[in-house]
Amino acid sequence: MKIRKDKDILLFTKLGSFSILFGCGVLFFQIGSKTVMVLGGMSILVGIMMCIMALVASTKPKTELIRDERITRINEKAGYNAGWLIMLAVTILFWVDKIWSLNIELKDMYYTTIFVGAYSWLILRWYYNKRCIE
């Protein structure tokens, strides 16, 4: 497997490594405060994700990462349909709450819409990329 080592990949890896080191430093020096510990943990997590993303991107040729018109069209179509799915999910929750009096709070609605929106967008993107939109 050929691994690219160009400027963008190295920059992303450096930022990820810095984020991990920052997180470790925060956890080491501020172990008492819960909020700071969460911040440190998040920083480590983001750093690890950035390093993984850089590694995955480095194994692909640069031409496979171009955002061309087909990808733009796929993203637009997936976003449009994900938007309608969010509307549908919110409508269903609203009527379920009305009919069965479940006392669903607004907080639960946030999680549902984020979940439905993000996952449906990712799944639709994958589907349109496989099938190819006309």
Binding site: T63, E64, I66, D68, E69, R70, I71, I133, E134
Partner: peptide
Amino acid sequence: QEELAVKVGVRRETIVFLEKGKYNPSLKL
């Protein structure tokens, strides 16, 4: 396919779908 994709500034996958007749390109492409 790779060389053609680089020349027109798209992904190789786009050329694959174009050759199969599964993708309608923009006028510019």
